[in-house]
């Protein structure tokens, strides 16, 4: 297994010193090239889980258990080595394309930054590579856009830049935390398609986090359903959606608009009777 998480618990300490546990012992495994969807409402601990994996929990958080990634426990790995892994082996895409990019830096420089850091590329090589990445995420007129600032771009374009940053070094694992939530519905599908294609082409393992079962169903092989820091259900996406074992999963499915549920049935997957 490329990634295996065992009994991960995360708690937050408040200013008076009391601590509250928000993730209560999660286990999961992810093989190379596999994609896992984590679904749950806000406060289910899914984002905390992803931040723990990339080692960027806020200072007030404490994590225990094990996060084994390619044979190393990320929870005990020294910060310096974590920096070497972040961006290079593990990429991350964040929810808010509006605020996730540095407003004072051109998008090209922001993509090139990781390349120069990890590969020691020259400025011009990194720029050429950044241009190629912008074309990969299908930004029109990439040669001009590379010198744009984030505020000059639409939300969808910024999220493409976010994807370009995350896959720049062809990481083994990509974590996408609600990558389409802040976007218009029309743009959501495009971004998901780009993400899906790139992950498949480059053989990247994906953890996709969403509150939206429709999004999860589109890409992920397996699905983990979380509620208030606990695992509710875990299995093949198709199985979870078709015959949910847990009441909470059923509630999530029922909460979807009926039309969306229907389209899930028709296009989302090839069931045994399809």
């Amino acid at each position: 297994m490329m990634l295996s998480i065992r009994d991960l618990r995360v708690s937050f300490e408040d200013s008076s010193g009391d601590s509250t546990e928000v993730v209560h012992g999660i286990n999961l495994d992810l093989a190379r090239g596999e994609s896992l969807g984590i679904v749950g409402e806000s406060g289910s601990g899914k984002s905390v889980l992803s931040l723990a994996t990339i080692g960027l929990l806020p200072g007030t958080a404490r994590a225990s258990g094990q996060i084994m990634f390619e044979g190393q426990d990320l929870l005990t790995l020294p910060e310096k080595q974590m920096c070497g892994l972040r961006g290079r082996k593990i990429g991350m895409i964040f929810q808010e394309p509006m605020s996730a990019l540095n407003p004072a830096m051109t998008v090209g420089a922001q993509i090139a930054e990781g390349l120069r850091l990890h590969k020691g590329m020259s400025q011009s090589d990194a720029k050429t590579e950044a241009l190629r990445l912008l074309e990969m995420v299908q930004i029109p007129q990439a040669t001009q856009r590379i010198n744009s600032y984030p505020h000059e771009m639409s939300g969808g374009q910024r999220q493409r830049v976010g994807i370009a940053i995350a896959i720049a070094l062809k990481p083994d694992l990509l974590i996408a935390d609600e990558p389409t939530t802040a976007l218009d519905v029309t743009v959501q599908a495009e971004i998901l398609d780009i993400l899906d294609d790139l992950v498949t082409d480059l053989g990247i393992s994906l953890i996709l986090i969403s509150h939206d079962l429709g999004v999860i169903a589109r890409i992920s092989d397996r699905t983990l359903v979380m509620y208030k820091g606990d695992e509710m259900e875990h299995g093949d996406t198709e199985r979870v959606l078709r015959s949910p074992q847990h009441d909470y999963t059923r509630k999530l499915l029922d909460a979807m608009p009926s039309r969306a549920r229907k389209s899930l049935d028709q296009t989302g997957m090839e069931g045994p009777h399809a």
Partner: peptide, 26 residues
């Protein structure tokens, strides 16, 4: 506390690099 500083850290920038290259200019 801005998101883009976290993005920078997720790229693999160390705490100080993210501080001087991303936080301080802003």
């Amino acid at each position: 506390n801005e998101d883009f500083v976290r993005t920078a850290r997720a790229k693999g920038l160390g705490r100080n690099r993210a501080l001087w290259l991303h936080t301080v200019p802003n």
